[in-house]
């Protein structure tokens, strides 16, 4: 059984249909790269499946339980959010919290884990992303790459079943991008299930187990990285890759 199955998500912004029935199946351990031009709906899709946007229709089966993406209860939303992690394009670290507090808040307040245990867990994941020396820093004192690595640690700390990445390197220069991608590669190697909206072709090619290409609110092509990059089927995919 798939860890996560999303069926037929649609979403309108005013009159514009930005998602036209998007479906996706994710197995445990999958690293799914979602590619596509800006405006193709990939970020909206990712936001819909974590309830950051309210979909106009669509169903998600997570761990065998079905969720109506249009009309889930608050309880169901929290349930999903506690099983998932989300990494934003612009990091969104809590500005008034230190690095350590950023990582522990979801544990202590969100999950009632005792402070001592939460700290141990936080230090462990921060060490994993190479940020354990910055526990008392505030986000504004860190580079973009460092902030994003803390954000990944924050997502990782709650032991999620899947982590969603929304263009995690789009706001970073090439060097900082490299340090963030390095962390993500390691996560993939450790078996973390990931759905990554990205413009990083090399990451999609080398790290992911599945590539999904979206255009104008639909999935145009879905295949293995090898097939996707070497033998693209759809003309739109070919056009995208030729760019």
């Amino acid at each position: 059984m798939a860890l996560l199955e999303i069926k037929d998500v649609s979403k309108y912004f005013d009159d514009k249909e930005v998602l036209k029935g998007v479906s996706l199946k994710v197995e445990k351990g999958d690293v799914v790269s979602i590619l596509g031009a800006s405006g193709s709906g990939k970020t909206t899709f990712l936001r819909c499946i974590n309830y950051l946007e309210n979909a106009d229709s669509g169903v998600m089966v997570f761990d065998g339980k079905e969720y109506d993406l249009k009309a889930s209860s608050r309880k169901e939303m929290t349930e999903i959010r506690k099983k998932t992690g989300f990494v934003f394009q612009n990091y969104n670290l809590f500005a008034n919290k230190t690095v350590l507090e950023n990582v522990t808040l979801g544990l202590t307040s969100g999950r009632k884990i005792p402070a001592g245990m939460a700290k141990d867990r936080a230090v462990k994941v921060l060490d994993k992303v190479g940020m354990a020396d910055y526990l008392d820093y505030y986000p504004s004192q860190l580079s973009g790459g460092q902030q994003q690595r803390v954000a990944i640690a924050r997502a990782l700390a709650t032991d999620p079943e899947v982590i969603y990445f929304d263009e995690p390197t789009s706001a970073l220069d090439p060097q900082l991008t490299a340090e963030v991608l390095q962390v993500m590669r390691q996560l993939a190697k450790d078996g973390m299930t990931m759905i990554v909206v990205t413009h990083e072709m090399s990451f999609a090619k080398e790290v992911s187990t599945k590539v999904v290409f979206m255009a104008d609110g639909v999935v145009v092509e879905e295949s293995t990285p090898a097939d996707f990059f070497n033998n693209p089927q759809d003309p739109k995919t070919r056009e995208f890759l030729a760019l």
């Binding site: 950051l52 929290t78 959010r81 934003f88 809590f94 500005a95 969100g110 997502a155 709650t158």
Partner: peptide, 17 residues
């Protein structure tokens, strides 16, 4: 910024938290 609220939701906090 709205992202602060969204990030809060994503780490499993309630609105009041």
């Amino acid at each position: 910024p709205r992202g602060q609220l969204e990030a809060g939701y994503c780490v499993g906090l309630s609105y009041m938290q």
